[in-house]
Write a protein that binds this DNA or RNA. Structure first.
Lengths: 352, 352
DNA sequence: TTTAGCACTTCATATGTGAGAGTGCTAGGG
DNA sequence: CCCTAGCACTCTCACATATGAAGTGCTAAA
């Protein structure tokens, strides 16, 4: 596995040069250009021999005989794992990131803003997934009537999120009944039950006698809460057009599948879900899928980089960047982590 | 202006045939094809003469000498105004629309769902704009504390929308102060003041003495309310990929400007805003902009059809469909009106 | 007024050619 | 043993050319 050792230092620096050059220029590299642009003290012929061996190792390939070389997906992987250097943020980047600090205090606004900034700074597509409220065990439920058919609902989730919302029902609400239900829900279900299981089991579970009488109300209540949580879990997407400016996606044939994939919320959810499943080695909590490493066929000409954000110390949701395999991994990863870090501090503050 | 009279019946039915054919097939029509496909009892030569005159009138044009003819924007306009027949909904359409009836009762979910359905049914891009809360005069404001730093806020807008939400402040809230403010806001501002002017004038307007003491609180309150309303006014967009399947948008050169335009919320808001400004004759409240009639250069190869939805009898927001100029106007307009009608009834019910 | 016939235009497609870029291989030099 | 100069070869791209198909406009006759 450790291809690292089999590569001479010279080959590594050559590969590094080729990949960095290709990332910025986007065109196949010939031996002559490499010598000129990167100051190797060797003749093109020597470079050719080296490249030939790098191609045998599967790290480069030629689009056609007698074109220059291009990094293969395996080549990018090697680059990301072994060659890539830390990215030094430009003043411009810092400008971008600063804009995130002065956002409002609603979680959806924060994510939307973060994604927008991330996509602009990386000139790629940025996506985010809000915390999974429905799957997270409930710590406590609190309900408080405010008029004859609405109430304030407070949910405490185990990941630290407190969520208050207004729930409006079609039937009248009485304080005593509400208290009864609150009590019932807290004792019967809470601590390890998620909204998801609560919602799906409620219809079948046998209820205590005094609760049974208000079954309709209970059902409406829970499904209203569930629906609200569901609405809060929509994904965020920004910067689609950036991808379409890349030369590799100029033809609809290549761009269309990706755009269609992104149009479906479920795809994006699954994309993040697969990060957790993946056995790829991740560094600093950053997941990185290069080309074929992507589970979805539509994305096999892209790279996807993702990282979780936290509330206090608990992973809550994820943000990611989708771009061409030819993306500036170093920059993207750095910005991704910065933005995730900002989201983490903002949210942790919000819910402390 | 009334080109209508200058066109013989035969020319009209010829134009009608050409446009309908082009809408379905998407390719320039030659005289021979027209005779074959539409059963005109004439020779191609005659058709050619007629077409030649239709071209002189500016209703058709040739992409190049010796290609068939294509409707011009003016031709589509004539078609929409004079030739188009009522659309008969297919069972499939009804299937789509039925799905809208069983949606949740939150206004954002309703619009999102409506737009999704509309885009699928028309195979085009659908967009929607929620009610303009911030511009609408406030009828009444009600505030009710629920704990030491949050309150339930009820806003009654003049367009019939009642909006309840939770507002959370950074400073403690006391019932008496809240009552004072409620009273103040209702008397000083309400009835003809919108959130927008309230928000923007508050910093400069001199306050009464007893209110002055709580200026900070008042400011925070109003800006939080304003921010909430602003968040509620985000636009809805669905079905972008449908446009990219149309042959006229296969090349990025044509597709990119449109995609980029749509990526900006502000563009879509302005698009709807221009409907109100426009002096185009509208039939049954349906606005229709064909090609060059669009204000925005990016959309001059598209057609945009829009219509308002209502709450009770007050226009509240708009929905629209954006597609190629070659769209099936009859179908799109019919579906648009149906969906708008459904939104109207759902919302009117919701706020009655 | 309609139509048949014909010359003409334009596009799309296939084919051919030369220049340019880049390779692999071979043989010679340090 | 590694490096390099030289050269034949391959492939793409841009450009020119030829050909067939589609469709028109015009003219003259029914």
């Amino acid at each position: 596995m450790s291809l690292d050792y089999r590569l001479s230092e010279r080959k590594k620096s050559l590969l590094n040069a080729i990949i960095r050059d290709y990332i910025t220029h986007g065109e196949p590299l010939g031996s002559r250009t490499i010598v000129q642009r990167h100051g190797f003290n060797l003749s093109p012929a020597t470079i050719r021999n080296e490249m030939s061996e790098l191609e045998e190792a599967g790290l480069l390939y030629q689009p056609h005989t007698s074109a220059g070389r291009i990094p293969s997906h395996k080549g990018y992987r090697f680059f990301v794992d072994n060659l890539m250097e830390a990215y030094l943020p430009t003043p411009e980047d810092q400008q971008y990131v600063k804009r995130l600090e002065q956002t409002s205090k609603a979680i959806d606004a924060i994510l939307a803003q973060a994604i927008k900034i991330l996509s602009e700074a990386t000139q790629s597509i940025a996506i985010a997934e809000p915390p999974h409220l429905r799957q997270d065990p409930l710590q406590a439920i609190q309900m408080m009537p405010i008029d004859d058919s609405s109430m304030v609902l407070s949910l405490m989730f185990s990941n630290g999120i407190r969520r208050q919302s207004l729930v409006r029902l079609s039937q009248p609400l009485y304080a005593e009944i509400l208290a009864l239900m609150t009590n019932y829900l807290n004792h019967q279900f809470s601590k390890r039950t998620s909204l998801d299981t609560l919602f799906h089991s409620l219809a079948t579970v046998p209820l205590e006698r005094e609760i049974q009488r208000y079954k309709d109300l209970l059902l409406e209540m829970v499904s209203e809460i569930y629906a609200q949580a569901q609405r809060d879990e929509k994904v965020y997407l920004s910067g689609t057009s950036h991808l379409l400016r890349e030369p590799e996606f100029q033809s609809m044939e290549h761009a269309y599948p990706i755009l269609q994939f992104l149009e479906q919320e479920a795809s994006i959810h699954q994309l993040f879900y697969h990060c957790g499943e993946s056995h790829l080695q991740k560094s600093h909590h950053v997941y990185c899928f290069i080309g074929h490493e992507n589970t979805y066929e539509e994305l096999q000409n892209c790279s996807f980089v993702a990282t979780p954000y936290f509330i206090d110390t608990k992973a809550s949701g994820m943000i990611g960047v989708l771009g061409p395999t030819r993306m500036d991994y170093s920059k993207v990863m750095a910005l991704l982590q910065t933005v995730a870090g900002n989201i983490t501090t903002t949210l942790s503050q919000l819910f402390s």
